[in-house]
Design a protein around this nucleic acid. Structure first.
Length: 577
RNA sequence: GGGGUCGUAGUUCAGUUGGUUAGAACGCCGGCCUGUCACGCCGGAGGUCGCGAGUUCGAGUCUCGUCGGCCCCGCCA
């Protein structure tokens, strides 16, 4: 057995004259006849091996090598006659004196190279080959380094990493659970945790004070570029905290993580109340790199000349405006496309206004109205104004989406890291489906002190001590100050329309635990996959998860999920419908 | 659950208004080549056009269904 003495990617000029052994995969061969070059790849990079005519039997062996063969090579490191500047190892090469083929390989379905010349479908089916690509190797390593940075930072700050059960109880609120049938107790089920929420709060009650965990969570909902059915959280909980102090701790964590890519963060991160975020950006996760803000123009519309706007406002709607500087020259077809987008998001229409040789607009308005709108938005001649009159939420969403996806020309700004804390979320939101209020965050979130009186009278107006951490329009974390008083916890459950008996059944142990001296506490959970995605500059978490699932929750490599035998079902007391 | 988009050689794609033998590049195979690194040159093999129905004299192309990839809405305490 040839034992590796150095990684291919670590070969440097300083190794000149030494005998080394490299182990790795054949990346590429260049056969010159009496001279053969072979690039060998391992997890650190590429090295060039040269087989030359003073060892004709070795040259013959080398000619038989094909891509992705696994080889060991013993040889002498020497300087190249011509340096390859594109390769970190490009100053040297290894003159082979011994070659061992550990394993041959079939011709791979795609060439292992960056960028891959293969569809994502094929990459996922042959993930073990895709993961050989240098870029994927970097991503997986970055993931490791990020988890190390988290563990070091948290430990340094007095937090203990504590494991919690993967087989837990189903959660009545929130996402759909993945269920695990119990063989011993037929007809009963464990659920994979959507998060370790109750366990980490229980740990606070147990006195562990500062807890964290890098932990897998499971939610049986539809997938997206940033959502997988199983994902990893950095879960944190802490007792005796105040919000600001806790924010600072978490900002420090982000600092430690982003230091991995040499990025410095501006601290403290801006704080943005939920209501303001919605008003200005039409989103609870605004991308602050986009320098556009919405404005309310309802008063202008109500008193104005347009029956269309008046009718929309009279029906309980609002008029929202977005000024886009310098976009006054946009073509009609582009404007129409924006209108289509607004309609796709549920708005009845999109009004555009520009000021070139007089007012131009998709809606007839009196000049006085144009003047008022323009003044309110602070428009200049080259600008474009976009307006939506509709139900408030619809108008904000439609314009907010146009804002979010506005093509940014300022590349430097696009490279910024714009963090912000979105705070003061509503405690509840109305569920049309269930005809009741449901928790916007989760039912253990503490209401704002000032709004306690509204819990029974107008639950929709109660603000929560909940917060999300947003980075460039991506929700990277969310948490809250929790309820640590049993009586208040019961009140919140009642506001959710849960009967005491029901609460007892579903949260019984936890309510009892709260009555044995629960410290004030709160916490947060970060989406670890999303953080690593942003660190890597990727737009899908699949790029930083070794074995992800497709948007239909299939694992194309293993074929999971799969059918099970009748025997297995029988053991569990289950029958398929 | 809904909308959009894609599916043609091993791979990435092209393929006109439905019309002869479905093309290109890369990869692969064989040959040549002593300094290549996107090696080069010569030659070659390789196709259930995702699957199933339908329309038609004739379907890669049109219609319907279905499976799969991706994006989005709903959903995601």
């Amino acid at each position: 057995m040839l034992k590796r003495t150095v990684y291919c990617g670590e070969l440097r000029a300083e190794h000149e004259g030494r005998e080394v052994v490299l182990c790795g995969w054949v990346h590429k061969t260049r056969d010159m006849g009496h001279l053969v070059f072979v690039d060998v790849r391992d997890r650190e990079g590429l090295a060039q091996i040269v087989f030359q005519s003073d060892r004709p039997e070795l040259v013959e062996e080398a000619k038989k090598l094909r891509n992705e063969f696994v080889v060991g090579v013993r040889g002498l490191v020497r300087r190249r006659s011509a340096v390859n500047k594109d390769l970190p190892t490009g100053e040297v090469e290894v003159e082979a004196v011994e070659l061992r083929v550990f394993a041959a390989s079939k011709v791979p379905p795609f060439v292992i190279a960056d960028p891959p010349q293969a569809s994502e479908e094929l990459r996922l089916k042959y993930r073990y080959l895709d993961l050989r690509r240098p870029k994927m190797q970097r991503h997986i390593r970055l993931r490791h380094e990020a988890s190390l940075a988290v563990r070091n930072y948290m430990s340094r700050n007095g937090f203990l990493e504590i494991e919690t059960p993967i087989m837990a109880n189903p959660t009545p609120e929130g996402a759909r659970d993945y269920l695990v049938p119990s063989r011993i107790h037929k007809g009963r089920f464990y659920a994979l945790p959507q998060s370790p929420q109750q366990f980490k709060q229980t740990l606070m009650i147990s006195g562990f004070d500062r807890y964290f965990q890098i932990v897998r969570c499971f939610r049986d909902e539809d997938l997206r570029a940033d959502r997988q059915p199983e994902f990893t959280q950095i879960d944190i909980e802490m007792s005796f905290i105040e919000r600001e102090e806790f924010f600072a701790l978490n900002e420090g964590l982000m600092e430690a993580v982003f230091a991995l890519t040499g990025r410095k963060l501006a601290r403290p991160f801006p704080r943005l109340p939920y209501a303001e975020a919605m008003e200005k950006y039409g989103s609870d996760k605004p991308d602050l790199r986009v320098p556009l803000e919405m404005l309310d123009l309802t008063a202008v519309g109500r008193d104005g000349s347009s029956d269309v706007l008046k009718a929309a406002i009279a029906a309980g709607g609002e008029l929202k405006g977005l000024l886009v500087p310098g976009a006054g020259t946009l073509s009609r077809s582009r404007l129409d496309k924006l209108g289509d987008k607004a309609k796709a998001l549920g708005a009845k229409g999109l009004v555009w206004i520009r000021k070139q040789d007089g007012w131009k607009s998709s809606l007839k308005l009196a000049d006085a109205d144009f003047e008022k709108i323009w003044a309110a938005l602070g428009g200049a001649d080259a600008d474009l104004a976009l307006l939506v009159a509709d139900k408030k939420a619809t108008a904000l969403k439609a314009l907010g989406e146009i804002r979010r996806t506005w093509p940014m020309e300022d590349a430097a700004r696009w490279a910024n890291l714009e963090f912000c804390w979105v705070t003061d979320f509503p405690l509840f939101e109305w569920s049309e489906e269930e005809k009741r209020f449901v928790s916007m965050h989760h039912p253990f979130t503490s209401p704002h002190e000032d709004d306690m009186g509204l819990l029974e009278t107008s639950p929709g107006k109660v603000r929560a001590k909940a917060y999300d951490l947003i980075l460039n329009g991506v929700e990277v974390g969310g948490g809250s100050i929790r309820i640590h008083d049993m009586a208040l916890q019961r009140r919140v459950f009642r506001s959710l329309g849960l009967a005491d008996s029901e609460t007892e059944e579903k949260f019984g142990y936890f309510l009892e635990a709260l009555s044995y001296g629960a410290p004030p506490h709160g916490g947060i959970a970060f989406g670890f996959d999303r953080l690593v995605m942003l660190l890597a500059g990727e737009e899908s978490i699949r790029e930083v998860i070794p074995f992800p699932k497709t948007t239909s929750a299939l694992d194309l490599m293993t074929g999971s999920p799969s059918a099970v035998s009748d025997r297995q079902l029988d053991d569990l007391g289950l029958k398929l419908k």
